[in-house]
Design a protein around this nucleic acid. Structure first.
Length: 305
DNA sequence: GAAGGGCCTTTGAG
DNA sequence: ACTCAAAGGCCCT
């Protein structure tokens, strides 16, 4: 498979990625920038090492490496077919990104963001891990969120082995409810520990069926999420966009708010709901993508890279 | 109902 | 050493 792929490799890639032998190849026709996708603050537990990304999708460990025409991958999944299906869903390859970006880029700032990060995709994450992740994101920063979630997974999740490397599944709600607030506080979660423990308990006892929310309309699903401790407008929108297929969601954090002020002339004090309605009117079902491009673009600009 | 302010922990960067 | 910001939410005036 790898050899067949190499014959149409572009001149830009002159050597095989490290440790390509034995990896399977997944052809991808959609635009994909794996680095931008995995490092744009949607997910926090993927690690890069020598051009390979290591992480967990569903119940299985994966290592991924982007090459011309697709991905090289290894997995702990039982069959290649299962892995391909899992990756396809995770990367939202059913989204026609070219069309989405074309529709979104109706103004200068978005046109620049889209042009600068071609292949940045939304992901379809596991709803519980996604919700828990963004509960932990409150008033935090990405390096810290990553560290916190890694601690949680390594303390309470089931270990997986892939090519001699250890990865951890994210622990289920029942496991975290059992662990309790004090234990989570001990992992450095700060005031988020109480939120996470209480929401875990609610989810574990069936107070809300996260998977079922994929079938519910946006407003209904959001209202259900916002009943949970530590879940307000922003965290709910993150869970909706990144894991529940509600791409009309539009999470507004400090960065996106800044982008809306700087690039679209919104006033500093504008309320969340007001900005949300504006974005949904402008971008409709592509609001979630629009948000991700604004977030990633402004963040990279301000980091000077 | 809207608006403003303080507090909830901890870390990383300047 | 000190300050501020960080993919917020909640509760009180």
């Amino acid at each position: 498979m790898v050899e067949a792929m190499l014959h149409h490799t572009s001149a830009a890639i002159t050597v095989l990625p490290a440790q390509a032998d034995g990896a399977a190849f997944m052809p991808i026709g959609q635009p994909l920038d794996l680095q931008a996708t995995l490092e744009s603050g949607q997910v926090f537990r993927w690690r890069r090492d020598q051009g390979w990304y290591w992480g967990v999708v569903g119940q299985h460990a994966y290592s991924l490496c982007q090459v011309e025409g697709g991905l090289l991958f290894r997995t702990s999944a039982l069959s290649t077919a299962e892995a391909l299906a899992e990756l396809h869903a995770f990367l939202r390859l059913d989204d026609d990104l070219e069309a989405i970006c074309r529709d979104m880029a109706v103004d200068q700032p978005m046109a620049e963001a889209v042009a600068s990060h071609r292949g940045l995709r939304l992901l379809r994450q596991d709803p519980w891990e996604c919700l828990a992740s963004f509960i932990c994101s409150s008033a935090s920063n990405i390096p810290r969120i990553s560290r916190n979630l890694r601690s949680v997974a390594e303390s309470y999740g089931e270990p997986l082995t892939l090519d001699g490397s250890r990865l951890w599944r994210f622990p289920g709600a029942a496991r975290l409810a059992e662990a309790g607030e004090k234990a989570l506080l001990g992992l450095g979660l700060g005031f988020r520990a109480g939120y996470l423990a209480r929401t875990a308990a609610r989810v574990a006892e069936g107070g809300v069926d996260l998977m079922a929310l994929r079938l519910a309309p946006y407003r209904e699903a959001k209202a259900a999420l916002m009943e949970l401790p530590g879940v307000g407008d922003k965290v709910a929108d993150c869970a909706l966009v990144f894991s529940l297929d509600k791409l009309e969601g539009f999470p507004i954090d400090r960065w996106v708010r800044r982008a809306l002020e700087d690039w679209y002339g919104h006033r500093e004090k504008a309320q969340y709901r007001e900005l949300l309605e504006w974005a949904q009117k402008r971008w409709g079902q592509r609001a979630g993508y629009a948000q991700q491009y604004l977030f990633h673009h402004l963040r990279l600009l301000s980091k000077g890279s």
